[in-house]
Design a protein around this nucleic acid. Structure first.
Length: 207
DNA sequence: TGCCAGGCCCTCTTTAGGGCCTT
């Protein structure tokens, strides 16, 4: 995939944004030609409390957030970094909620679609033991990106996974031009129908 | 008072429920 795609990952203090639930860290891996060509990462202080369970999960403590830059400034910088690049994330419905919410607080509206490496993995890698990001990375021997459950490491891991998914499409279905729009289209086809859909696509291209 | 996410997939489905996945 030659086009630039921004693969993002948020760490947060809860499951759904709003009220006391906010993003605490963002990582963005800018991918081009299957390679990470640029990175953006920052902790972000939204003035919220992180429960102990999530402190243990992410390694992001309340003390770390006290000295972190303000969330609004970080999100402005992140939005500038991403620009008009299409977006991707693992379980994009989660990161999309936080991206839209945090940008909404700044009066900004997302224009790009999100590709979801979780939905694509379920469709294209059904043989994997499960579809957690960490499991897929180990199962497919993806490059080590650092501590799991930190935003930059997880964003880069999802970027490697997206490259694997693109390679799978190229090798199994001989599709030469994998772009973000195709990934978004595939994730809307149900898991049971995606392989017949791809075979039809392949036949149409070789006809 | 009691509850507290939500989008998606699969199936023993569609007038539903349980599990996955993210933090």
């Amino acid at each position: 995939m030659r086009q630039r795609v921004a693969v993002i990952d948020f760490e947060t203090n809860g499951a759904s944004p709003g009220g006391d639930c906010r993003a605490t860290e963002i990582g963005v891996a800018m991918v081009e030609d299957g390679r990470v060509v640029d990175r953006f990462q920052s902790l972000m202080n939204a003035g919220v409390w992180v429960p102990p369970m999530i402190e243990r999960l992410t390694g992001i403590s309340n003390a770390m957030l006290k000295s972190a830059p303000p969330a609004d400034q970080v999100m402005l910088d992140a939005a500038r970094f991403v620009g008009d690049a299409p977006l991707a994330a693992h379980n994009a419905s989660f990161d999309r909620k936080f991206w839209d919410y945090e940008l909404g607080l700044l009066g900004l509206v997302r224009r790009q679609d999100f590709a979801c490496t979780l939905m694509l993995s379920r469709r294209l890698l059904p043989q994997a033991p499960d579809h957690k990001l960490g499991t897929l990375a180990r199962w497919a021997s993806l490059p080590d990106t650092g501590r799991a459950h930190r935003a930059m490491a997880d964003a880069e891991m999802a970027a490697h996974l997206m490259a694997l998914l693109s390679d799978t499409l190229r090798q199994e279905f001989h599709l030469p031009d994998i772009d973000h729009a195709l990934l978004c289209k595939l994730q809307k086809v149900t898991a049971a129908k995606v392989k017949p859909y791809l075979r039809e696509l392949q036949a149409a291209m070789t006809a």
